[in-house]
Write a protein that binds this DNA or RNA. Structure first.
Lengths: 158, 158
DNA sequence: TGCGTTATGTCAACTGATTGACACAAAGCA
DNA sequence: TGCTTTGTGTCAATCAGTTGACATAACGCA
């Protein structure tokens, strides 16, 4: 009789975890699908949007970032990022500059074109954020962000 | 002077939304990457795991499900699901049965092999859930699940 | 000087995801 | 009966993601 509640609890935990990751899977797919629609006019995707957004951060806007740090920031593989960067490079949205301090490094930086595209993207991006998060209060959004952040940490250690 | 706080609030909201979707992007990538490691011994991926899990639900285990309902349940495109199903079909994990009631429909069902694979996968799946969610309490997991569910709803309307 | 390490780039192979388009059989209705 | 709609399958093109492997240039140190 002592086993029953333990088993039941384990089954409940499994169920919660299962739902959680399934919703994560669905929400992520939807984010890419719907988000891409909002920036489709620029010929961009959500992933490219993430890269440009990373390069548009004030701290790195002028100096650019190394490929290595960009990989760590985005959490994707070097080979995957390279393809993304090549596509953005072809469109002249970014440029690869040799690092003066370290000849092995390339500093990835937004070009003037890239900056203007990013500026033009702000309106549709804000529209997307507003539409997708319309049913969540700011507090709930913050809570979700923090929980996702901790989930990310847990996943990294798994 | 009345504009300033409004602008500041808008910037804050943008920032929260930005972080939220960026974490969703990272967490989802990590889930696939790490999760696939746990079921790699079976030659499976997280997506295939999702499909098999959907077919293993008690309500559909015996009768199977139509492709149409599976598409709606998983939230992926027909063409994508077809490729997934073909791969699972080749491995004899699932079977496509003609629906008696509707000749156009195919009922997708786990085979005996598929059921045994799913049973064998339970241990690594539980290990993955436990490791990835170690830092979150049950209450937090439930909260995260509910918030993701509402985010999914919002994204679907975006 | 020479050797190991690091940063980057690229090729290959595979899986997952999308949209668009075409095909076909069966259902449903006029 | 005939026409439209529905459910499924497939081909094509494109983008994103992974791992593994190899190449190259530059840094760092003995």
């Amino acid at each position: 009789m002592a086993q029953a509640p333990t088993k039941a609890r384990a089954a409940q935990q499994y169920d919660v975890a299962n739902r959680l990751f399934f919703r994560l899977y669905q929400a992520s797919n939807l984010m890419h699908k719907q988000g891409t629609r909002y920036v489709d006019a620029f010929g961009a995707t959500t992933q490219q949007w993430a890269v440009i957004g990373a390069l548009a951060r004030p701290a790195v806007l002028d100096a650019g970032v190394t490929v290595k740090s960009l990989i760590e920031f985005l959490g994707v593989s070097r080979q995957n990022l390279a393809i993304l960067l090549n596509r953005l490079d072809e469109r002249q949205w970014i440029e690869r500059i040799k690092d003066k301090a370290d000849g092995r490094s390339r500093r990835i930086r937004l070009t003037a074109v890239g900056k203007s595209v990013w500026a033009a993207m702000q309106a549709p991006i804000e529209a997307f954020y507003g539409a997708a998060l319309a049913d969540l209060s700011i507090d709930e959004q913050v809570m979700l962000y923090r929980l996702l952040d901790r989930l990310k940490t847990g996943l990294a250690k798994a």
